[in-house]
Design a protein around this nucleic acid. Structure first.
Lengths: 400, 400
DNA sequence: AAAGTAAATGAATCAGTAA
DNA sequence: GTTACTGATTCATTTACTT
């Protein structure tokens, strides 16, 4: 396996790469932020024409266009290109790719979706970037990647064969007597074009101090669907070298180019020991954080609260707070004693400056008898069902 | 509230709309594709095709450009436009919007993400569409919508204030004694630009046989973030009228235009009873299947009861009964007064030999003040949320 | 009791935004 | 520009649970 690194302009350097020798080009050029000139007021009445816009698209388009032509040349007939950009450049990227590769070679617009911080209140929180996937010809490589079925999928859907009905519509295949024809278990659903991959966190070890660094997992997925082992990957704006790391991990050859000497040095250091951070979130999935179980929260229907996931003692916080402090809420678990629940709540909330903590009692029986040893900050509230039982019990006793 | 429907070319018809009179334009023009759209499952024999007029990109761009200028004119200074398209037209849409509204008026690229079935093996499964959100000026309306915190967010993040330490670094704010300074009120996080909304289930009631029909929830979200009540919404390619339905549900005025007589008729029928059929997925999340009309019964979580289906006064019966008679239960409905709810329960249950009837109070506010006129058989129980509010109110008063 | 593991949670950072 | 504020994530540390 080879990994080559060059410092310089990728336009010049890619000219030294032979025709049809590369299987995948991944490019993540600097984001486009320049202004595009508008048509003058006198042109307003004119019909819109692309040539006008084209002319007004400045050096950025030019810059990319020249390089795309080289990348097209070096790609093998079975090769693909993935163009990474954000909303500033996405339309420019599309136009240029259509121009150089051809409209019909468009394969997918991939949305890389992540969650991120920000206090934006006058706009939606940006939480995605775009990748355009084009192939050089119709003979492009595409390695099938399957994902798990969605949890709401019907078992029949996974098991049954399809056929066409008399109008050409797809339907479950049936025998003459109308019974369904089962099929073997299918392996999963095809990978969708929206990829939920966590943004590389500022604290991640994987970070090498390069601000635009991409997660290795994103690059691995791109390489997996479009290449085979020992194929050649080219990243002409390689930055901190994530594509090269992913290539090494997946046993692909790779060429990285960057204009910045610093980027090359960062990459070179990183390639000595190519690593992928196996963060908890990536390894185990988002669901593992979901510990505030739906079941418990259901008791709080109609309450204006925020569920709390990462704390074993607190299930939710009241949105309004109380006298400047938060109001933590806990639901008694099945089988858990009221006293245990109260202690667990108290311990989790005591450092949070809460003057009122609320415990919702869900278990009938024992009830408030243990009340004496419950900390004074903890107020016990009956769940509706419990309140009903208590009422009936009281009525019963009254009668006696 | 007004809802107007016109059949004709939106270019001509929008010329009759006064300047600055519209608050939101939502447009979902026929997708730019060579394929002819076919009618859905409802009636396969009837051919339903958008006139496949656009033979070249320029022609399509011209068509849209002329209309966008009109939409820009009719928009108020605080108004916004949402342009719905898929990957075939997204770059064209961006260029035209940049041209007509200005590059700086770009607000967001919204990704509508959905899951659906396909057997595509040579490509990624298309699972999103794009919406471009532009405003007419910088004074655009934007109504804050909040979502829940990500599961990986910890309580301290939600609760604690920040400050700068002596080196100017951000840190949690502390008192002199080292204790943390809390911040009780937290509302949630800003809405992101990737919206996970299920594709309209082919079986949903909402479906009226129009191939490109959008979920009402998608349109509701667009209308909510960009308009206030009684604002004007314009949908110049209204199709089956989803934007109009959402406008009615959210108490906005609206104008729908479509070139097809059939679309206008479909819309007109639909507007008679604008109904929102929420899919299973939306109501309860992806992993739970839930019976219909569970909304009220959710308050009774943990109670051993039988739901009552065909009785407007009684929601459930306690399985155990009380002193030989049944125990009917009713949940107070949103907006319903406690007294009304009590009467409705009493009337429904008086012939059922019940000595105890239970009314669950879900609305905060008025409370038990009307208790005097409630029949003695009816016992009012606070829903958990209500009990919590009552407790906090009492604590507040104690302190005074 | 001591040691080793797993889980809980506190601290820190930012191709974030807003005024 | 400059400064203040945000929350998703992950690292580091503490606490809790096993042997």
């Amino acid at each position: 396996m080879e990994t080559k690194l060059y410092q310089g302009d990728c336009l010049e350097l890619s000219k030294t790469i032979p025709d049809n020798s590369i299987d995948l080009v991944y490019l993540d050029p600097p984001f486009f932020t320049q202004k595009v000139q508008k048509l003058g007021a006198r042109d307003r009445r004119k019909a819109f024409s692309f040539s006008d816009v084209w002319r007004s698209l400045d050096e950025y388009a030019d810059f990319i266009f020249l390089r795309l032509r080289e990348f097209h040349r070096v790609l093998a007939a079975t090769g693909s290109i993935f163009f990474h950009c954000d909303h500033n450049a996405s339309h420019v990227a599309r136009l240029l790719l259509d121009e150089v590769f051809g409209k019909k070679m468009f394969r997918s617009e991939i949305i890389w979706h992540y969650r991120r911080w920000s206090n934006s209140q006058r706009s939606l929180l940006p939480a995605h970037q775009n990748l355009y996937f084009y192939s050089k010809t119709d003979e492009y490589k595409f390695r099938e990647v399957l994902q798990e079925y969605s949890p709401s999928t019907n078992v029949d859907q996974m098991l049954q064969k399809r056929a066409r009905d008399e109008f050409g519509k797809s339907a479950y295949a049936r025998n003459e007597d109308g019974s369904l024809i089962p099929d073997g278990y299918k392996k999963g659903v095809p990978l969708s074009d929206v990829w939920d991959i966590p943004f590389l966190n500022p604290r991640a070890k994987e970070r090498v101090g390069y601000p635009t660094q991409k997660p290795v997992l994103l690059l691995e997925r791109i390489i997996e669907i479009s290449t085979d082992e020992s194929d050649w990957v080219l990243d002409p704006f390689c930055g901190s070298g994530t594509a090269l790391v992913a290539s090494i991990l997946l046993k692909r050859n790779s060429i990285g180019i960057d204009i910045s000497q610093e980027a090359i040095e960062v990459s070179r250091k990183r390639l000595v020991n190519p690593e992928k951070t196996e963060s908890y979130l990536l390894r185990r999935g988002r669901d593992t954080y979901q510990q505030a179980d739906e079941d418990a929260l259901a008791y709080l229907k109609g309450l204006d609260m925020v569920p709390v996931q990462r704390n074993s003692g607190i299930d939710a916080l009241l949105k309004t707070g109380f006298q400047g402090g938060p109001v933590p809420i806990r639901i008694q678990r099945p089988g858990e004693s009221l006293l245990d629940a109260a202690r667990s709540l108290y311990n989790a909330a005591k450092t949070k400056n809460a003057s009122v903590m609320i415990l919702v009692a869900t278990e009938t029986g024992a009830g408030f008898d243990a009340a004496s040893s419950i900390p004074p900050e903890v107020f016990v509230i009956d769940a509706t069902a419990n309140a009903i039982h208590r009422l009936l019990k009281e009525l019963e006793e009254e009668k006696e």
